[in-house]
Design a binder for these strands. Sequence first.
DNA 1: TCAATGTAGTTAGCTATGCTAACTAAGTTA
DNA 2: TAACTTAGTTAGCATAGCTAACTACATTGA
Lengths: 138, 138
Amino acid sequence: MEVADRLHSAAIHLLRRVRKQDTRAGVGPAQLSALSVLVFGGAHTLGQLAAAEQVKPPTMTRVVKGLERTGLVTRFADRNDGRRIQIRPTPKGARLLQQARKRRIEHLARQLAARTKQELSALDEASRILEELLKHWA
Amino acid sequence: MEVADRLHSAAIHLLRRVRKQDTRAGVGPAQLSALSVLVFGGAHTLGQLAAAEQVKPPTMTRVVKGLERTGLVTRFADRNDGRRIQIRPTPKGARLLQQARKRRIEHLARQLAARTKQELSALDEASRILEELLKHWA
DNA sequence: TCAATGTAGTTAGCTATGCTAACTAAGTTA
DNA sequence: TAACTTAGTTAGCATAGCTAACTACATTGA
């Protein structure tokens, strides 16, 4: 379908550009993305985090190890279930994520600055439609 | 900025969903993406391909090796410059890419089917604005 | 009660993908 | 034609994905 195609392509190329800003964070993309889930969604168990990131548990074990080694998250025991491991961002982790996110958003915002008010509101409306779409995704 | 933020988030989540369709292609994301450049853009030198994919030449050397090993691309010498290596998709490579792309687009199109005509045209317009934005990206 | 079953996470080991540094080979220039 | 530049590869490292097999804890049911 025509719209699907155009949307798909635009999303790919947009993210490819924006992602380049992450180089300076000094943290890989998987770690950054997992950290983002924790900073915006609060503590998660390893399994919840793996599900949220759509990766298998062994992958998340290693991602969390990396984040822990650099002091960006801490792990603590679950009170109700001795098998579960809760993971929480440290203040350092929250700070780093916010900065990385700021770089991405500001970079994109700079590009958008040259657009007209009409175009910006069209983009805003489209984003809201997509949010709705994602909420009901089959 | 508000719009940048919303757009960024929508693009991330959209692609994450769509990308899951690629599992069945049996080819990694970097290979699939490079193959897409070749199928839609014709033969490229290794360096052009690396630039298009925003990776360094050594990375692309290996990606191309993988594609070559599974018979999805072929390499041939550049007539004008003996240092250059041209890379071209094979019929098998073109076929595989088209199928993978079809799966992605159709999956997205199925989700879009529940939207109104107005919403679809808003998404289409936004995609065109983004294409324009990407063209003049600083 | 406690043995069988299920669930959460880790470890080991493979592949793919990213990088830099250092190299080879081919073109360009002074 | 010697010096420099450019294209690509090789080697070696880190990250990130997977499956299979394991440990530890929780739940279930005879």
